[in-house]
Structures are given as structure tokens and as C-alpha cells.
Design a binder for these strands. Structure first.
Lengths: 362, 362
DNA sequence: GCTGTTTATGGTAACGTTGCCAGATTCTTG
DNA sequence: CAAGAATCTGGCAACGTTACCATAAACAGC
């Protein structure tokens, strides 16, 4: 790069720098810094950790040596010596289900990073044997805590082997509430979605709620029951009577979502607004309304849930929907973990609001 | 657990076990195992690492001690001693853009895990200062390699400070191709999408390609040019003439996507199939066709790209689309990293096929 | 029965770092 | 100016692990 006196020299200097680089980048230790700067290792350590009692002269020399040799302290040695590992485990059952659930990771990471900690992530793919193996690995690496995240809001069971490891659940919870958790406030979401329709002047508000059965049993999904309660509460607060006919439960296949919309609109007194259990339902709802020649939001307002950007921003008109606090849950989980380091954690059950994202469909 | 001679002893043993557990889970070392089993630390180490020259008797005693004290070797100490860190860095510019890009992480993780390695992930949020800080942290933790992933296929520039660290790019590449990379084969995707329409008997095939400009300049996105080339090639192979009027470029806003569909269908000889640059385009294309009273796939076939499950499976009819090999890219990147440990890596430029996912829209 | 190999075992150093201690120098203060 | 405090400084041990070395016993072959 720099000007060279003559070719041979330039070439030599270049390979030398390269060689040195290769050798050094591998392992520059505090000892070499000490030797290079002509001080003891302790002094170097003191400079690194901003301890007092180092003369300006030596501090300068050490800093220079560090820069010259591209020294980086070994986190491994620090940890072994007695420091913290600075590692947090992020365990998730299945990332793929809800795409924007990645935001949980981002939220967790941002807080961790601010505390000079790093995230070790493992996706178990729903395999509990794998989950236990992951916990084992986390333990071997001395993580200081674990965030267990589910990709949709539901009760979970923790993998074995977590005893004694501070664990916070995000977007899920234990049936017995014995561990701290942070989840979306579904009642709040249902309430404000309905309120948005009411505030826009709508009085008959349909609700295509979610529904799911495994072997005839409906798991206690808060999304289903919470949003319904919020819906009812909002109606009540606005003096509107609750009407069974306006509430439907869809197993979320496109055809079912479509059918429920059609049946809702075939009512003697059809709704002028439809609150959909999620954005996919809203998408199919749009199709059905379009086929009926109805305009959104002119004839019927539609509100979704989840704020899946690809759908909500991609639809025509763009979808007004409820935001799941994924990012915030990730943040909260790690925050709580870090705040309570050392202490035993209270099993706080935190619910974060799902704010309305107003677009064009109301 | 074992039978007790008299109650007092049992009780003592119990609390003792609990107490011991609390204290030990914190840190059981190889030394304590050795003392408990009445052997030397070396012997314990030999058992742990399946080395020969340990009598069955002592091996049994050591294994028992390990189980009794819930011992786990410290990866930190192993690493310091000279072992590998077993850490891989996963650096990404922005996870949020394409939701299913998380599959890159899953793919990377699965391979890493199979090699007893763990993924350290950092999302830079597109901030290059943060990216460099992340590289620094990765270095301090002695990661053995880095996967740099972009969330849509494009040229990138690596953060500073990666010199000497084996790096593989996933879903992105360097302009000068100086580092190995793995990306989707866009030409292949464009070719097979078009071929699917041709094979279904279609002869006039519209193409709503993607387009993007920043300050009047279109970055060299392979998605745009590659798919177009594939489209052209497929037509040629089937003896169909390429027609400029059938190819459009959309900046991907819902309204533009809609407009392009309408204009395509307003042609003197409108297409009987439309290949969309991605699933969002296809979604808007569906709306436009529905409004025209056209049936999919009866009147017009539609093919998407990306296979965003929420859209592709949520539409009516379900969308036939091209799968981006996210999971496979993650796998390939880590595989390549691990295979070439120690060696200097050839800057292989790998392109993985985008297979057709046949659903109902063709 | 003597050499040479195979098997079994534990002690010790080293990995890179920092806390503790001890020694040396300078600065206060009565 | 003597005694104590504050400021510098480096040596050494220890964190938990494994490679290397040394020692010892058992076993083979002639």
C-alpha cells in the first residue's frame, strides 16, 4: 500500500507483516504485552481493567503495546480465573412458526449486549431430547441464565436439567407459574382491537377467533380466551350487547377463514367490522369480502392480529392490526435475568401490551 | 435413596445431599471426582475422554462418582488448556426483513451441533459499528469461524477486523468474490418457475419482476437479473419467443404490484400465467385477478417466489411458489467452515437450487 | 529367569488471566 | 525529620483441564 523504495523490499515487508499477523493474531498473551512494554503482567492487567496505581508513563507504554500487537484479552481465561462467563442461553422450541418471533432474539440480544453478554442460541425443533442436550451444553459452558422462548403464546414444560439455572420464559409460561415469564397481554389486545372498531363508529363487530384442537382437546391458549375476554369487555364498556352469532371460531385453514367471513356477512344483520384472530385470517377475510363486492374499509372494516409485516403491509388496503410485543418480551426476559443475578428470582408473570398498528383497513 | 439403618441417618443424608447439590452444582471439579472415586485426576480425565489404560474397576468407580456428584466438565478449562473453543459466530445484518431467513440459523445450528459446536449469534441491525464490535467480541471468545448472513440475496461488505478469521457468507457475497459464499441459484429458480408454467401448457407467460432503486441506482441484485435470465432461457428451450411487453418491473408496493397485473391483463393478448417476483407480488396479483373476475388457476396460473409459508399456504387457492434454500445455505456455510478448519479456504461461490413447491395456483 | 513390551496409575506443568501479597518509592503531617 | 499513609510495581498462586513424564506391575518370548 505505502510507497516502497524498491520492489524487493516492498515484497519482503509485505510477507513479513503477513507472517507476523498470522502468528500473532493466533495468540498474543498478556505476558507478551508485558515483555514488549517492559513491565510486569500485573501492570498490564491493571491497565486492562482500569485499576488505579499505574503511572502515566507505563500506562501509555502498555496501551501502545496492546495496539501494536493487536492484543485481545481471552474471555476464556478471564472466566476460568473467576470472572463471569458472560454467556446467556437462548432456547427455543420452534422458531419457524411465527416469522417475526425472531424479534424475541433481537430484543434479548440487545439487552444482553448492553451488559457485555452474548447469546448462545439453540433451536430444539420441538425435540425434548435435543432440548435436554442443549441444556447440558449450556451448563458446560456455564451460561448465567436461560431464556426459554416459544414461538406462539402457550403453556410449556421446561426440559429437564434446568434446576438451579436462572430461567425466564418468553412468550410462554408454566402451568404452575413456578418460573418467571413474559407474555403478550391478549386481553389488552382483544380489548383495543375491538375498541378501535367501536371508536370508528362501528356497532356490530364480528370476531373470527382462533381455534385449535389436538385429539379433541383445546389447549389453554391465552390467545383464544384472552382476546375473547377483551372483545367482550370492550363491548360492555361501550354499552354494546354481546351477541353469540357474531363470534366464530376458525381452525385457521384458508377455506374455513373464508367460510366464516361469508357466514358472518350472510347474517340478517351483518357486522360492519370484523376482528380477525390473526393476519392470515384477515387475508382470507379480504378475499371473501372482495368476492362479495364489498369495499374495505368503506363497507366493512377489518382488524388483524400479529402484525406480520409481509401480510399487513402487503394487503390492499394495508391492514390495521395488533402488534405482538416480541422484541419487548426478549428485552424484558434478559433484563429480568440480569437484574436478578445471584438472587433467587420471584416467579413474576409479566404481560406486555399489544398496541394497535393503524393502517388503512379501519 | 439407598436403604438407611435408622431414621436420623436418612434425614441427615437427605439434607446433606441437598446441601451438597446446591454447593456442587455450582462447581464440581475433576479433583473432587478423583477424591470421591479414590483415583488420580489423570484417571478421571482418561475416563472422560475415553482413553485406554484404565482398569474396569476404576472406570466404574469414576463413572459412578460423576453420576453421584452431577459432574460436568468445564468447557472453559478445556478450551484454555488447548482444546478448541467449539464456538462459531453467526453474524447477520438484519434478520427481520425476510421472516423465514431464520432457517439459515437453523441450518447452521444443526450442522454445528452435530460437530459439538455452538452458535454465538449477533444481529447487527445493519449498523456497521456494531458489527465491528461484534467481531471483536467473537474474537475475544475465540470463535473458530464466522457465518455472515444477509437476509436477502445481495452483495455485502464485511465488517473490519475479520482478517484471519475463517468467514463464509450465506445469502450474500463479496463483489470481488474473495470469500466463500453460498447463495440461492436465481437463474435456476427463474428457469423452473417458467418451466412449470410451460409444462402446464401455458404459452404466454407474464413476469412481474422485482425492481429496486436507491438514489436512482439499481444495486446488482441477483434476484432481479438471475430470475429474468432463467425466464428467458426457459422460453428459449421451449421454442417460445421472448416478448418485452410480458415482462414488468415492480418496486414491490402493493399498488404497483396490482397495477402491473392489471396492465398485463389489459394487453391485446394477455398472459395465461404470471410469474411473480415474490409471494407478496403474487398476493396482490391474486387481488387484481379476483377483481377482474378471473379464476386462479382456471383462467390464469400464478407462480410466486420465496415460499413464505404464511402467504403461500394462506392464500386461496394456495400458492405454487419457489423455495429459497435458507436452511440449506445455513447448513452449507457451517459445513464448509468445519471441513476447512485449519486449511485456508478456497473462495468457492456456491449456488443452491430453488425448488418448486407445487400447490394449487398452477 | 532375564529382557522388553504392554497395561495401569498418578504427579506435574501449562493454558491466560487477575487477586493477593510484599516490597519499594514518594508524599503527608505533626 | 521521623513515622505513617498513599502510590507504584512485580511475583506468585489459582481457576479446571489434559498432555507429558515417570513409575510400577503384569505379561510375553527366548
Amino acid at each position: 500500500m505505502q510507497g516502497a523504495i524498491f520492489p524487493g523490499q516492498a515484497q519482503w515487508a509485505e510477507t513479513d507483516a503477513e507472517e507476523r499477523h498470522r502468528l500473532m493474531d493466533a495468540k498474543v498473551t498478556i505476558k507478551e504485552i508485558a515483555r514488549y512494554a517492559g513491565v510486569g503482567t500485573t501492570t498490564v492487567s491493571r491497565v486492562l481493567n482500569n485499576h488505579p496505581y499505574v503511572s502515566d508513563e507505563k500506562r501509555r507504554r502498555v496501551e501502545q503495546a496492546i495496539a501494536a500487537l493487536h492484543y485481545r484479552p481471552s474471555q476464556t481465561a478471564r472466566h476460568l480465573r473467576g470472572g463471569s462467563s458472560g454467556l446467556l442461553g437462548f432456547l427455543t422450541d420452534d422458531v419457524a412458526t411465527t416469522p417475526y418471533a425472531v424479534d424475541i432474539i433481537r430484543g434479548a440480544q440487545d439487552v444482553a449486549w448492553a451488559h457485555h453478554m452474548v447469546l448462545l442460541v439453540a433451536d430444539t425443533g420441538g425435540n425434548s431430547r435435543f432440548a435436554e442436550a442443549a441444556v447440558d451444553v449450556f451448563r458446560e459452558r456455564a451460561v448465567e441464565g436461560i431464556v426459554y422462548a416459544a414461538m406462539y403464546h402457550r403453556p410449556v414444560r421446561l426440559p429437564a436439567g434446568l434446576d438451579g439455572l436462572p430461567t425466564v420464559l418468553a412468550n410462554c409460561f408454566l402451568e404452575d407459574r413456578s418460573a418467571p415469564s413474559v407474555v403478550p397481554d391478549e386481553v389488552y389486545g382483544g380489548y383495543h382491537a375491538t375498541k378501535a372498531a367501536l371508536d370508528a363508529g362501528h356497532r356490530r363487530i364480528g370476531f373470527i377467533n382462533l381455534w385449535e384442537e389436538t385429539e379433541g382437546v383445546t389447549p389453554p391458549f391465552p390467545a383464544i380466551y384472552g382476546r375473547l375476554r377483551g372483545y367482550q369487555q370492550a363491548l360492555e364498556d361501550h354499552g354494546q350487547a354481546y351477541e353469540d352469532a357474531l363470534v366464530r371460531f376458525s381452525n385457521q385453514t384458508p377455506r374455513e377463514n373464508y367460510r366464516h367471513t361469508r357466514e358472518l356477512m350472510a347474517l340478517p344483520a351483518p357486522p360492519t367490522a370484523i376482528f380477525c384472530g390473526n393476519d392470515k385470517v384477515a387475508m382470507n377475510c379480504f378475499s371473501a369480502l372482495a368476492e362479495l363486492g364489498l369495499d374495505v374499509p368503506g363497507d366493512v372494516a377489518v382488524i388483524g392480529y400479529d402484525n406480520i409485516a409481509h401480510i399487513a403491509e402487503g394487503l390492499l388496503p394495508q391492514l390495521t392490526t395488533m402488534q405482538l410485543p416480541h422484541y419487548e418480551m426478549g428485552k424484558w426476559a434478559v433484563q429480568y435475568l440480569i437484574e436478578n443475578q445471584g438472587r433467587t428470582m420471584e416467579p413474576v408473570q409479566m404481560a406486555l401490551p399489544c398496541p394497535l398498528v393503524a393502517r388503512e383497513s379501519v
